[in-house]
Nucleic acid binder design. Structure first.
Lengths: 109, 109
DNA sequence: ATCTAGTACTTGGTATTGCAAAGTACCAAG
DNA sequence: CTTGGTACTTTGCAATACCAAGTACTAGAT
Protein backbone atom coordinates (compact mmCIF):
# COMPACT_ATOMS: atom_id res chain seq x y z
CA UNK A 1 0.00 0.00 0.00
CA UNK A 2 1.33 3.33 -1.08
CA UNK A 3 -0.21 6.73 -0.53
CA UNK A 4 1.14 7.97 -3.86
CA UNK A 5 -1.38 5.78 -5.65
CA UNK A 6 -4.16 7.05 -3.50
CA UNK A 7 -5.51 9.70 -5.80
CA UNK A 8 -5.58 7.18 -8.61
CA UNK A 9 -7.46 4.74 -6.42
CA UNK A 10 -9.90 7.37 -5.27
CA UNK A 11 -10.75 8.21 -8.84
CA UNK A 12 -12.00 4.71 -9.46
CA UNK A 13 -15.72 4.78 -9.96
CA UNK A 14 -16.11 8.52 -10.07
CA UNK A 15 -14.67 9.10 -13.51
CA UNK A 16 -18.01 8.29 -15.08
CA UNK A 17 -19.50 11.10 -13.03
CA UNK A 18 -16.75 13.49 -14.08
CA UNK A 19 -17.06 12.72 -17.78
CA UNK A 20 -20.84 13.09 -17.68
CA UNK A 21 -20.42 16.41 -15.91
CA UNK A 22 -18.07 17.63 -18.62
CA UNK A 23 -20.18 16.60 -21.62
CA UNK A 24 -23.44 17.82 -20.14
CA UNK A 25 -22.74 21.37 -21.26
CA UNK A 26 -21.47 20.92 -24.79
CA UNK A 27 -20.29 18.41 -27.31
CA UNK A 28 -16.74 17.30 -26.70
CA UNK A 29 -14.31 14.91 -28.21
CA UNK A 30 -11.83 12.93 -26.19
CA UNK A 31 -9.08 15.55 -26.12
CA UNK A 32 -11.50 18.25 -24.95
CA UNK A 33 -12.57 16.07 -22.07
CA UNK A 34 -9.01 15.12 -21.23
CA UNK A 35 -7.93 18.76 -21.15
CA UNK A 36 -10.86 19.82 -19.03
CA UNK A 37 -10.17 17.11 -16.48
CA UNK A 38 -6.46 17.83 -16.53
CA UNK A 39 -7.16 21.44 -15.60
CA UNK A 40 -8.72 20.27 -12.35
CA UNK A 41 -5.95 17.72 -11.66
CA UNK A 42 -8.07 14.77 -12.67
CA UNK A 43 -5.69 13.51 -15.29
CA UNK A 44 -7.07 10.69 -17.39
CA UNK A 45 -4.89 8.93 -19.91
CA UNK A 46 -6.05 7.59 -23.26
CA UNK A 47 -6.12 3.99 -22.10
CA UNK A 48 -8.64 4.99 -19.46
CA UNK A 49 -10.68 7.62 -21.24
CA UNK A 50 -11.46 5.87 -24.51
CA UNK A 51 -12.73 2.65 -22.96
CA UNK A 52 -14.72 4.73 -20.49
CA UNK A 53 -16.38 6.68 -23.28
CA UNK A 54 -17.23 3.42 -25.00
CA UNK A 55 -18.82 2.09 -21.83
CA UNK A 56 -20.88 5.23 -21.38
CA UNK A 57 -22.00 5.08 -25.00
CA UNK A 58 -22.94 1.40 -24.75
CA UNK A 59 -24.94 2.22 -21.64
CA UNK A 60 -26.84 4.80 -23.66
CA UNK A 61 -25.79 7.69 -21.45
CA UNK A 62 -23.86 9.51 -24.17
CA UNK A 63 -23.83 9.39 -27.95
CA UNK A 64 -21.49 10.72 -30.61
CA UNK A 65 -21.32 11.97 -34.16
CA UNK A 66 -18.31 12.00 -36.43
CA UNK A 67 -16.87 15.32 -37.47
CA UNK A 68 -14.03 16.03 -39.86
CA UNK A 69 -10.95 17.71 -38.51
CA UNK A 70 -8.60 20.07 -40.27
CA UNK A 71 -5.59 18.60 -38.58
CA UNK A 72 -5.87 14.84 -38.54
CA UNK A 73 -8.41 12.08 -38.60
CA UNK A 74 -12.12 12.67 -37.90
CA UNK A 75 -13.23 13.00 -34.31
CA UNK A 76 -16.03 11.53 -32.27
CA UNK A 77 -17.94 14.39 -30.69
CA UNK A 78 -19.83 13.14 -27.68
CA UNK A 79 -22.97 14.60 -26.16
CA UNK A 80 -25.08 13.51 -23.25
CA UNK A 81 -28.40 11.77 -23.94
CA UNK A 82 -31.70 12.37 -22.17
CA UNK A 83 -31.18 9.12 -20.30
CA UNK A 84 -27.69 10.28 -19.46
CA UNK A 85 -29.06 13.45 -17.91
CA UNK A 86 -31.30 11.42 -15.66
CA UNK A 87 -28.42 9.18 -14.65
CA UNK A 88 -26.19 12.18 -14.06
CA UNK A 89 -28.67 13.62 -11.58
CA UNK A 90 -28.75 10.31 -9.72
CA UNK A 91 -24.98 10.05 -9.64
CA UNK A 92 -24.65 13.58 -8.37
CA UNK A 93 -27.01 12.77 -5.53
CA UNK A 94 -24.99 9.66 -4.72
CA UNK A 95 -21.82 11.70 -4.79
CA UNK A 96 -23.25 14.29 -2.42
CA UNK A 97 -24.39 11.54 -0.08
CA UNK A 98 -20.95 9.95 -0.14
CA UNK A 99 -19.16 13.18 0.68
CA UNK A 100 -21.63 13.74 3.51
CA UNK A 101 -20.94 10.26 4.83
CA UNK A 102 -17.21 10.78 4.84
CA UNK A 103 -17.59 14.20 6.38
CA UNK A 104 -19.53 12.64 9.23
CA UNK A 105 -16.56 10.41 10.10
CA UNK A 106 -14.54 13.43 11.16
CA UNK A 107 -15.75 13.21 14.73
CA UNK A 108 -15.77 10.32 17.19
CA UNK A 109 -18.90 8.16 17.35
CA UNK B 1 -22.73 -0.23 -16.85
CA UNK B 2 -25.38 0.12 -14.21
CA UNK B 3 -26.06 3.07 -11.96
CA UNK B 4 -27.16 0.81 -9.13
CA UNK B 5 -23.56 -0.25 -8.59
CA UNK B 6 -22.37 3.28 -8.62
CA UNK B 7 -22.04 3.80 -4.91
CA UNK B 8 -20.02 0.62 -4.67
CA UNK B 9 -17.79 1.80 -7.49
CA UNK B 10 -17.37 5.22 -5.94
CA UNK B 11 -16.21 3.64 -2.72
CA UNK B 12 -13.24 2.05 -4.44
CA UNK B 13 -10.07 3.58 -3.13
CA UNK B 14 -11.61 5.66 -0.39
CA UNK B 15 -12.27 2.90 2.09
CA UNK B 16 -8.73 3.20 3.40
CA UNK B 17 -9.46 6.80 4.22
CA UNK B 18 -12.71 5.87 5.93
CA UNK B 19 -11.18 3.14 8.05
CA UNK B 20 -8.31 5.39 9.12
CA UNK B 21 -10.81 8.07 10.03
CA UNK B 22 -12.72 5.62 12.20
CA UNK B 23 -9.76 4.17 14.07
CA UNK B 24 -8.06 7.51 14.63
CA UNK B 25 -10.23 8.20 17.67
CA UNK B 26 -10.20 4.91 19.52
CA UNK B 27 -9.24 1.28 19.29
CA UNK B 28 -11.74 -0.75 17.28
CA UNK B 29 -12.12 -4.29 16.14
CA UNK B 30 -13.60 -5.21 12.81
CA UNK B 31 -17.23 -5.28 13.91
CA UNK B 32 -16.93 -1.82 15.50
CA UNK B 33 -15.60 -0.42 12.25
CA UNK B 34 -18.21 -2.20 10.19
CA UNK B 35 -21.03 -0.85 12.36
CA UNK B 36 -19.68 2.66 12.28
CA UNK B 37 -19.44 2.65 8.51
CA UNK B 38 -22.84 1.04 8.16
CA UNK B 39 -24.36 3.90 10.14
CA UNK B 40 -23.24 6.33 7.47
CA UNK B 41 -24.34 4.04 4.61
CA UNK B 42 -20.83 2.95 3.79
CA UNK B 43 -21.50 -0.73 4.19
CA UNK B 44 -18.41 -2.89 4.01
CA UNK B 45 -18.68 -6.64 4.01
CA UNK B 46 -16.27 -8.98 5.76
CA UNK B 47 -14.52 -10.04 2.59
CA UNK B 48 -13.64 -6.41 1.98
CA UNK B 49 -12.92 -5.19 5.48
CA UNK B 50 -10.60 -7.89 6.74
CA UNK B 51 -8.20 -7.82 3.78
CA UNK B 52 -8.28 -4.03 3.95
CA UNK B 53 -7.28 -4.06 7.62
CA UNK B 54 -4.47 -6.46 6.79
CA UNK B 55 -3.22 -4.15 4.04
CA UNK B 56 -3.29 -1.15 6.35
CA UNK B 57 -1.44 -3.09 9.03
CA UNK B 58 1.20 -4.33 6.58
CA UNK B 59 1.69 -0.75 5.44
CA UNK B 60 2.36 0.21 9.06
CA UNK B 61 -0.55 2.65 9.21
CA UNK B 62 -2.42 0.73 11.88
CA UNK B 63 -1.49 -1.93 14.42
CA UNK B 64 -3.47 -4.25 16.63
CA UNK B 65 -3.42 -6.11 19.92
CA UNK B 66 -5.35 -9.23 20.81
CA UNK B 67 -8.01 -8.98 23.45
CA UNK B 68 -10.12 -11.76 24.95
CA UNK B 69 -13.87 -11.60 24.41
CA UNK B 70 -16.60 -12.88 26.69
CA UNK B 71 -18.69 -14.04 23.78
CA UNK B 72 -16.50 -15.80 21.26
CA UNK B 73 -12.95 -15.89 20.02
CA UNK B 74 -10.42 -13.17 20.83
CA UNK B 75 -10.55 -9.95 18.84
CA UNK B 76 -7.97 -7.86 17.05
CA UNK B 77 -8.28 -4.31 18.36
CA UNK B 78 -6.79 -1.91 15.85
CA UNK B 79 -5.35 1.50 16.51
CA UNK B 80 -3.72 4.04 14.25
CA UNK B 81 0.07 4.43 14.33
CA UNK B 82 2.05 7.65 14.25
CA UNK B 83 2.88 6.97 10.62
CA UNK B 84 -0.80 6.31 10.03
CA UNK B 85 -1.69 9.71 11.42
CA UNK B 86 0.68 11.37 8.97
CA UNK B 87 -0.76 9.39 6.08
CA UNK B 88 -4.29 10.17 7.20
CA UNK B 89 -3.60 13.89 7.02
CA UNK B 90 -2.25 13.47 3.50
CA UNK B 91 -5.21 11.43 2.40
CA UNK B 92 -7.64 13.95 3.85
CA UNK B 93 -5.93 16.68 1.85
CA UNK B 94 -6.17 14.55 -1.28
CA UNK B 95 -9.82 13.93 -0.59
CA UNK B 96 -10.55 17.60 -0.13
CA UNK B 97 -8.74 18.38 -3.38
CA UNK B 98 -10.72 15.73 -5.19
CA UNK B 99 -14.06 17.05 -3.98
CA UNK B 100 -12.98 20.54 -4.98
CA UNK B 101 -12.05 19.28 -8.44
CA UNK B 102 -15.40 17.63 -8.95
CA UNK B 103 -17.20 20.65 -7.59
CA UNK B 104 -15.47 22.79 -10.19
CA UNK B 105 -16.95 20.68 -12.99
CA UNK B 106 -20.44 21.91 -12.15
CA UNK B 107 -20.14 24.84 -14.51
CA UNK B 108 -19.18 25.02 -18.18
CA UNK B 109 -15.52 25.67 -19.04
C1' DA C 1 -19.37 -34.79 27.04
C1' DT C 2 -21.33 -33.35 22.86
C1' DC C 3 -23.99 -30.46 20.00
C1' DT C 4 -25.66 -26.00 18.45
C1' DA C 5 -25.51 -21.10 17.83
C1' DG C 6 -23.05 -16.95 17.77
C1' DT C 7 -18.91 -14.42 16.91
C1' DA C 8 -14.35 -13.44 14.67
C1' DC C 9 -11.28 -14.00 11.40
C1' DT C 10 -9.36 -16.13 6.82
C1' DT C 11 -9.12 -17.54 2.15
C1' DG C 12 -10.13 -18.49 -2.90
C1' DG C 13 -12.42 -17.00 -6.96
C1' DT C 14 -14.65 -13.44 -9.94
C1' DA C 15 -15.64 -9.01 -12.01
C1' DT C 16 -14.52 -4.35 -12.63
C1' DT C 17 -11.59 -0.91 -14.08
C1' DG C 18 -7.50 2.40 -14.22
C1' DC C 19 -3.34 2.21 -16.53
C1' DA C 20 0.76 1.35 -19.67
C1' DA C 21 2.09 0.15 -24.00
C1' DA C 22 1.66 -1.07 -28.51
C1' DG C 23 -1.02 -0.78 -32.66
C1' DT C 24 -4.02 1.27 -36.47
C1' DA C 25 -5.46 5.08 -39.22
C1' DC C 26 -5.84 9.63 -41.11
C1' DC C 27 -3.96 14.16 -42.57
C1' DA C 28 -0.61 17.87 -43.79
C1' DA C 29 4.00 19.72 -44.55
C1' DG C 30 8.50 19.17 -46.32
C1' DC D 1 7.04 9.43 -49.90
C1' DT D 2 8.57 10.19 -45.49
C1' DT D 3 7.88 12.41 -41.13
C1' DG D 4 5.25 14.22 -37.41
C1' DG D 5 0.99 15.23 -35.28
C1' DT D 6 -3.59 13.75 -34.03
C1' DA D 7 -7.34 10.37 -32.93
C1' DC D 8 -8.93 6.25 -31.81
C1' DT D 9 -8.38 1.02 -30.53
C1' DT D 10 -6.73 -3.08 -28.38
C1' DT D 11 -4.24 -6.09 -25.18
C1' DG D 12 -2.47 -7.36 -20.88
C1' DC D 13 -1.63 -6.31 -16.04
C1' DA D 14 -2.54 -4.93 -11.25
C1' DA D 15 -5.46 -3.51 -7.66
C1' DT D 16 -9.46 -4.31 -5.09
C1' DA D 17 -14.55 -4.71 -3.77
C1' DC D 18 -17.43 -8.43 -3.36
C1' DC D 19 -19.25 -13.18 -2.75
C1' DA D 20 -18.94 -17.54 -0.80
C1' DA D 21 -17.06 -20.99 1.78
C1' DG D 22 -14.16 -22.33 5.45
C1' DT D 23 -11.70 -22.29 10.12
C1' DA D 24 -11.66 -21.45 14.98
C1' DC D 25 -13.10 -20.18 19.45
C1' DT D 26 -16.71 -19.61 23.29
C1' DA D 27 -20.93 -20.31 25.82
C1' DG D 28 -25.10 -22.50 26.75
C1' DA D 29 -28.38 -26.33 26.02
C1' DT D 30 -29.26 -31.26 25.76
Amino acid sequence: MNEDNFRSQMKKGILELCVLKVVQFQECYASNISERLKKVDLLVVEGTLYPLLTRLKNAGWIEYRWEESKSGPPRKYYQITEEGKVILKKLEKEWDALTQSIQSLNQPL
